[in-house]
Design a protein around this nucleic acid. Structure first.
Length: 864
RNA sequence: GCGGACGUGGCGGAAUCGGUAGACGCAGCAGACUUAAAAUCUGUUUCUCGUCAGAGAGUGCGGGUUCGAGUCCCGCCGUCCGCACCA
């Protein structure tokens, strides 16, 4: 018996697949009866080496692609490279290589590693976002969006990452730090390029409702991120002379117009134009504003931040009472970039307003009466009341419930012409320009006479020069001696190219559409996109829940409105897989150690770790995401060398549910390796030429066939439901059944049944361990690839048992079991159950009050 | 603070509809093969009591609904994730 040798077998089958070009997706073809299925995993950044996270991500997608192909779908499963970005510039600065060479070399290396994984990818569609053919098409639609006004430029406060020396979008700031660099982000006032994602805020929220194959968690996160709230925009007139520029009054936004009679002050943001003009006239105001800005933006700072205010001396008139005026304060807690940058304060029903009012001695008037409270005794002290109730102290709003009062107040304000009901979003426009040299150039030329002018499409792509100087930090494109100096396409005068490049998240916001025809002479070939889009199953990490996944949904809409696409939602199904983790190891001194330098042994209840060289005791740390900094990584190529690709694929899939983190362990990969060998042994020991015998002549053969049909049903369900770990457990289970019926001692009937079961098994393991499956398929004497063989069919009547073991409970406790035919009648079952000796013992001296028979499941006898 | 998810053996996990809790794997223990080890194979392993037969307990804690609860409801505790002065 030959031991399974992945080192010989795996490359052989990969070469055979490539030779036969079996994974190429055909062009859109109406005559093809197969339904299309587009499987995509988030494409990798070419960092240079594959890590276990990639293995898990791509193996997962490949299971789906191979499964769907076997189920009769026309599958598109492409691969490309998210190739622009800072690591290339950092490498350039450190090593003096060009970012382009570094990137393409990494791509070449990673392509080989990915190919080694045996993925069923259509490599003919591969591209990198740093290919001019790709980013040139991106510039083309960017110009379209610019013409439509979806791209704009304005001065504004932006997030500045001082380490990466570039602007970041709000989505890219995590806990006040840059998402890549981890540096504390500064606020800077800059002229910036924006994409008007807020135009689509409503559509992006509404669209979430249609994404029933997305995790609820991601939909919720996007909904919260967009943060829609409805309320009232309302202008307060100044009681005396209005400050310059605010003759029309001061506009505020509120979600609680029902509490207008509880208003005791207005507060504006320190960044409000009014605050700034007051500061220009009064140094003391300027000093106050400076004080407000000193506070940090981190979590802890905000938590500790005290409410601070400055009374401007200005007063405004209450919209419902000409004789009632309110003071206008500057409040450090009011944000400029939400709503209008100004609020009215109702201290009784908003905690922030209450803190502020108590500090500065402002009036607190309750206007919402909690259920059960008395109007004459209800007061608010240190805790604002935000619950439900009836409005009181509020003239025409009295006795209304909160929602009705909101409506009434808005109607009154609208009738007065002082404001309108309004919907406001937390989402901000997407700052897309980066001050970096290794990115897609913004295709705009700044002309002193004509202003910003789009580069004519005939002149696209605006290519990056090859001779950029990355030896020092900052924007290499900007300091290039000649690149930016051009003539204006409109007037022919001297002009300068924009030297900012696009956020790499722009690159990844449409690549899935480009895959449908990567050589099209326009950004997207409509016919190809109409055939393949949307992506039926997208697979990637949860970390992109509000970054990439929101941007891609937005760009898809923008391109649909440009008539480049027909779909508005790019990803019909989304699966977010968990991370690959590993135990961490440290020296006593705290220095991190690589797993393969450490030997772990079990000693009774505890595990002891020592350095392999020298035996020095090692501290076993937490289980964490594999990372270079903690050295708890395992190189995929080492695992492929030792156990083969299939074992690695199988293990990352088998040990945990795919949405959860999986812990890499030596024991786990060895278990997967054992399984592969045991599968191979079953095929290897099966005699090739057997005379077909009547399976029904041997009950063991019948049972084996039944088990195989149950396996088909169970595994199909498990894959459809992304329960890959459970599905693989069924495969292990079935292998145990096969092993209990070894070929060596099998009857002709069992041998025949084995032959049939093995044929199914080869096809069932194919999505997980594709190389092994081909070897097994060939061993059976089948022709063609198992990769293109149809999924085994499932015969319900064969899978069904004709007898089953029914548990019997007495008062809910399991007391015995009976063997009965499937579908047995209730009376008959009851009789057998009551006659069972084990049950009888527990009925002694008791009266049977009730017998519950759940067909084919359980019997419960209630006694008293 | 707000929103969400999750708590099951020594470990990863299974139980898809309220119906035998612990599938499958890892680790452990015992045995076979071997001069020995590795590999492989067989058996065994929730806990407590018991020689066995068996009995009792058991899915974070406390209640509830039900003939029956890991699963549903209420209240706690804990862990993780997202957001966070968003008016």
């Amino acid at each position: 018996m030959a031991r399974y040798n992945p080192q010989d077998t795996e490359p052989k089958w990969r070469a055979a697949w490539a030779e036969a070009d079996v994974f190429r997706a055909g062009p859109p073809d109406k005559a093809d009866p197969r339904p299309k299925y587009y499987v995509l995993e988030m494409f990798p950044y070419p960092s240079g080496r594959l890590h276990m996270g990639h293995v898990r991500n791509y193996a997962l997608g490949d299971v789906i692609a191979r499964f769907k192909r076997a189920r009769g779908f026309h599958v598109l499963h492409p691969m490309g490279w998210d190739a622009f970005g800072l690591p290339a510039e950092n490498a350039a600065m450190e090593r003096g290589v060009s970012p382009k060479d570094w990137t393409y070399q990494n791509i070449a290396a990673m392509r080989e590693e990915l190919k080694r994984l045996g993925l069923s990818i259509d490599w003919s569609r591969e591209f990198a976002t740093c290919d001019p053919e790709y980013y040139g098409q991106q510039q083309s639609w960017f110009v379209d969006l610019w013409r439509r006004g979806l791209v704009y430029r304005r001065e504004g406060m932006v997030n500045w990452d001082p380490v990466d020396m570039t602007v970041l979008a709000n989505e890219q700031v995590v806990d006040g730090r840059g998402w890549r660099s981890g540096a504390l982000v500064e606020k800077r006032k800059l002229n910036q390029w924006f994409l008007r994602i807020t135009d689509y805020a409503d559509d992006l929220i509404e669209g979430l409702k249609t994404l029933d194959r997305w995790p609820a968690k991601v939909r919720l996160m996007q909904e919260n991120w967009i943060g829609r709230s409805s309320g009232l925009r309302l202008t307060f007139a100044f009681a005396d002379k209005a400050p310059a520029g605010l003759e029309g009054g001061l506009e505020v936004y509120t979600t609680r117009p029902d509490t207008l009679f509880g208003a005791s002050f207005l507060a504006i943001s320190p960044d409000h134009p009014l605050a700034e003009s007051l500061a220009a006239a009064d140094p003391k105001v300027a000093e106050f504003l400076a004080e407000c800005r000193r506070g940090g933006t981190s979590e802890a700072d905000i938590e500790a931040a005290e409410k601070k205010g400055w009374d401007t001396g200005l007063r405004v008139v209450h919209p419902f009472d000409e004789t009632w005026t309110l003071p206008v304060w500057i409040g450090n807690f009011v944000l400029m970039d939400y709503g209008t940058g100004a609020i009215f304060g109702c201290p009784a029903h908003d905690q922030r307003d209450l803190d502020f009012a108590r500090k500065y001695g402002l009036t607190v008037t309750p206007v919402v009466l909690p259920p059960g409270a008395q109007a004459d005794t209800f007061t608010v002290d240190r805790e604002a009341y935000v619950g439900p109730g009836r409005i009181f102290n509020s003239r025409f709003l009295n006795d209304l419930e909160i929602e009705a009062a909101k409506k009434a107040a808005i109607e009154r304000i609208e009738a007065q012409g002082r404001g309108t009901g309004a919907t406001v979003y937390r989402l901000r426009d997407w700052g897309i320009a980066r001050q970096r040299g290794w990115g897609c150039p913004v295709p705009i030329i700044h002309c002193p006479a004509c202003g910003p002018v789009a580069v004519p499409k005939a002149d696209l792509p605006v290519k990056l020069p090859d001779d950029l100087d990355f030896s020092r930090p900052g924007n290499a494109l900007d300091r290039h001696p000649t690149w930016k100096h051009v003539t204006c396409p409109t007037c022919g005068g001297m002009a300068q190219r924009e030297t900012d490049t696009l956020d790499t998240f722009v690159d990844s916001s449409w690549y899935f559409a480009r895959f449908t025809d990567p050589t099209a002479s326009k950004p997207i070939d409509k016919a190809a996109a109409d055939y393949w889009m949307p992506v039926d199953q997208y697979v990637g990490g949860i970390e992109h829940a509000v970054l990439h996944l929101l941007y891609a949904r937005f760009i898809t809409r923008a391109l649909a409105d440009e008539d480049l696409l027909s779909v508005r939602e790019p990803f019909a199904g989304l699966f977010t897989q968990g991370m690959v983790t590993h135990e961490t190891y440290r020296r006593q001194t705290g220095e991190w150690l690589e797993p393969n330098a450490v030997d772990v042994t079990v000693d009774g209840a505890s595990r002891i770790a020592r350095l392999i060289e020298g035996g020095e005791p090692v501290v076993i740390g937490d289980i964490e995401k594999m990372s270079k900094s903690k050295k708890n990584t395992v190189a995929p190529s080492d695992i492929f060398d030792d156990y083969g690709v299939d074992a690695a694929r199988l293990f990352v899939m088998s040990d945990s549910p795919p949405e959860r983190d999986v812990q890499w362990t030596t024991g786990g990969i060895e278990g997967a390796w054992r399984f592969i060998n045991r599968v191979w042994n079953e095929f290897d020991s099966q005699p090739m030429d057997i005379a077909p015998a009547d399976i029904t002549s041997d009950p063991k053969a019948v049972e084996l066939i039944r088990a195989s049909h149950r396996l088909v049903a169970g595994l199909t369900d498990a894959i459809e439901g992304f329960r890959f770990n459970s599905g693989i457990a069924r495969l292990y289970e079935f292998l145990n059944v096969l092993k209990a019926n070894p070929a060596e001692s099998a009857s002709p009937a069992v041998l025949t049944a084995r032959r049939e079961a093995l044929s199914a098994l080869a096809r069932l393991v194919a999505p997980f361990t594709p190389h092994l499956a081909e070897a097994c398929w060939a061993q059976l004497g089948e022709t063609g690839f198992v990769a293109t063989a149809p999924w085994p069919s499932f015969d319900e009547t064969l899978a069904a048992q004709d007898e089953l073991i029914l548990p019997i409970q007495v008062n809910g406790k399991r007391r015995g079991e009976i063997r009965v035919p499937v579908g047995g009648g209730e009376d008959e079952i009851r009789k057998i159950a009551l006659a069972d000796p084990d049950v009888q013992r527990h009925l002694e001296g008791l009266t049977v009050r009730k017998v519950i028979v759940v067909k084919d499941r359980i019997v419960n006898i209630v006694v008293g």
